[in-house]
Nucleic acid binder design. Structure first.
Length: 336
DNA sequence: TTTAATGATTCTCG
DNA sequence: CGAGAATCATTAAA
């Protein structure tokens, strides 16, 4: 066997031109058409069993001979060309790769929710924006909001770690495949273009995985948001002391029960609720009082007495301590 | 279980 | 944008 024959033999699998093919076409047809798998596997096993150190050495030697052969580059380039031409016809199907509108939408949403994009800062800013949009001053540090933020942060963290994992796996896999192909390109006609295409295919696959990740993250955020909104609807009655403070203010300003922004803030602080809750309370109270003054008369009297008593106490204390009168308590309570 | 009370939301209007 | 009004949804009382 001279070098050229041997070379052809070793390339046989790919080019479809093995000695067996040339020498005995019938045998191939027999194997392919009727298909006798048991025999095939048996053959293969036998071949594997027959591998010896010498045969491995021989294969290595053949490989080396092939690599060094002066005709190799020319032959490979021709084979690559042929391959390229046959592949070209198939390629058109999966060629187009425009920026997916779906993935853009997901990206935008993740960015808006502060999941992707700049780290911590962006996230809390978005949460703060959500809090502000929910109505109320930005420092409404209610439990739900911090809870929401915490959950969002958790989602963000998972998202980032997963994304990183996928990216790492993708680059690892790509490297692996590229190395493999480069290695094989020494014994098989593989053009750089083909490697490039392979890499592109891998990236497409991984980006589809990434899209799934983004999608599920979006879903998680949506669920969190809806739960958050629901949670806001779940109300808890204010504690007794808070209601008392609010009622006191209301009935002692009955002629003009519209607390200023500062007064609201003060009340909010006293009652351990938010300013918007104070606003809600006064809105509700005003309308409900107006609707049925009779029903609230008892309450009104009660608080009037209370503030009157308080005022009396305060003034008594004040006169006792000989200190200036307190500025703002029950001054226009004239209940008898 | 029904009902009243109550905090929150949503809408319109000035 | 804030107030009023209607309404929703939950809680507490009956």
């Amino acid at each position: 066997m001279d070098d050229q024959t041997r070379m052809l033999a070793s390339m046989g699998g790919l080019g479809g031109l093995s000695q067996a093919d040339v020498g005995d076409p019938d045998s191939v047809r027999k194997q392919q058409s009727l298909g006798q798998p048991p025999q095939d596997i048996g053959d293969i096993l036998q071949q594997i069993m027959a591998i010896t150190d010498e045969s491995l050495d021989e294969a290595q030697a053949r490989k080396h001979a092939l690599n060094c052969h002066r005709m190799k580059p020319a032959l490979f380039s021709v084979l690559c060309e042929i391959k390229e031409k046959t592949v070209l016809s198939i390629r058109g199907v999966q060629e187009e790769d425009p920026p997916d509108p779906q993935i853009m939408r997901l990206d935008n949403m993740l960015l808006a929710e502060g999941v992707s994009g700049p780290e911590k800062g962006g996230g809390s800013a978005a949460a703060a924006a959500a809090a502000a949009a929910a109505g109320g001053s930005p420092n409404d540090g209610s439990i739900e909001h911090s809870d929401y933020r915490a959950k969002l942060a958790q989602i963000r963290q998972i998202y980032h770690s997963e994304l990183e994992k996928y990216e790492q796996a993708c680059s690892e896999f790509t490297n692996h495949v590229m190395n493999l192909l480069r290695e094989q390109s020494r014994t098989r006609p593989i053009s750089p273009k083909e490697i490039e295409r392979m890499v592109a295919i891998i990236h497409r696959k991984f980006s589809s995985i990434q899209m799934q990740l983004k999608q599920s993250t979006c879903e998680a955020v949506m669920i969190l948001r809806s739960r958050f909104l629901d949670a806001r609807r779940k109300r808890r009655n204010f504690n007794k002391q808070a209601t008392e403070v609010l009622n006191e203010y209301f009935y002692s300003h009955l002629s003009n029960p519209y607390p200023s922004e500062e007064a609201k803030e003060e009340l909010a602080k006293k009652c351990a609720i938010t300013v918007s809750q104070v606003s809600n309370w006064f809105g509700n109270k005003r309308i409900r009082y107006k609707k049925n003054i009779g029903k609230f008369q008892e309450e009104a009297n009660l608080y009037a007495v209370k503030t009157a008593v308080d005022a009396a106490n305060v003034s008594a204390q004040a006169s006792q301590a000989n200190s200036p009168a307190t500025p703002n308590s029950g001054l226009f309570i004239c209940y008898e």
